[in-house]
Simulated assay, not measured.
Amino acid sequence: MFVSAKTLSAIFVLASTTIAWSSLVPATPQEKAIEYDRTIAATRRFDAPEAGQAVAVDDQHFYAIANSIIAKYDRETGEKVAVWKSDSERPLRHLNSGIVRDGKLYCANSNFPQWPEASSIEVWDTETMTHIDSHSLGICAEGSLTWIEPIKGGWYAVFANYSKKVNDDPLAKSHRSTQLVRFDERWRRTHGWVFPKSVLDRFDPHSCSGGGFAADGKLYCTGHDFGEVYQLEFPKAGSVLVLTETIGAPITGQGIAFDADLLWGVDRAKRQVVVSKFGLEK
């Protein structure tokens, strides 16, 4: 096949332009290394096959949470003492973060990746690991519920959205629509905040998977993938949370739990629950 000099010249120019342009395209957030304000190390690791979504903790046990299974472990010996599994009467398929309050384990639950998105709060008695209550939020315009924390007079909850296409939703939002919402005790929305771009870039293409308030009263959140914990403050004005510290941690994102000065998290790849000294400011 004959190719003219003019055509070859055009191809060369196009190739050169493509190479030059590709060198200017920034790496994706996943490819970028970032500098941490500080880094914490693991002090203990427990093997737990259920450590896929999150971990919750009380003074005697920790609870490894998978999509449809929760296992209760002795926090000193690592011995598994009880297991709860979903069944036809309680067909839970996507449990997320959990938190223990007054002998009850509260877990965020959603129908992810189905559409339309529906979520609920599921409750277990930690002594017997019996499922004792369910509060359905139904279809949630905010997204999929990933973590909750009961507070005096209400709840905090995060609703995730994803840039990665997960279903056939024609009006799917991106990870930038992830938001923290405050509800009163009757589950009426009273406040809402979005995450700053610097944190959203680390969530991309997933979302906020874990979070809560530590003993210092500050808010900390995690994404879906990275061993990072983000300390956030509520803004003095407006709706965007303020990033104050990024902490490197020996976890793989997902749901976390605080116990005094300890951070509990999961290492999904190793199927382990990881404990770290968090170093809270006094």
Rank of each mutant, 00 (worst) to 15 (best):
A215M: 14
F203V: 02
A215W: 05
C221E: 13
G217K: 00
F203N: 08
A214W: 13
H206P: 00
A215R: 14
L200R: 03
P205Q: 03
L219D: 10
G210N: 10
G212S: 02
T222F: 12
V199Q: 06
P196M: 10
L200C: 13
A215S: 15
H224G: 01
C221Q: 11
H206T: 10
F203G: 09
T222M: 14
P196V: 02
G217C: 07
F203W: 01
L219H: 06
G227L: 01
F213H: 11
S198V: 12
L219N: 08
D201G: 00
K218S: 13
A214N: 06
S198P: 00
S198A: 14
S209Q: 15
P205C: 04
A214I: 09
A214K: 03
P205Y: 01
F226V: 02
L219E: 11
F195Y: 15
K197R: 07
F203C: 12
K197C: 00
R202I: 05
S207V: 02
F226Q: 11
P196W: 08
A214C: 10
H206N: 13
A214T: 07
K218H: 14
A215G: 14
Y220N: 03
A215I: 14
V199T: 09
F203R: 05
T222N: 10
L200G: 09
D216N: 14
G227V: 02
Y220S: 04
Y220W: 11
G223I: 01
G210P: 02
S209W: 14
G223W: 04
G211C: 12
K197Y: 00
H206C: 11
G212I: 05
S198Y: 00
D204V: 02
S207K: 02
R202V: 05
G217T: 09
G223C: 06
T222V: 09
R202P: 01
D216S: 07
L219T: 06
S198N: 06
P196L: 09
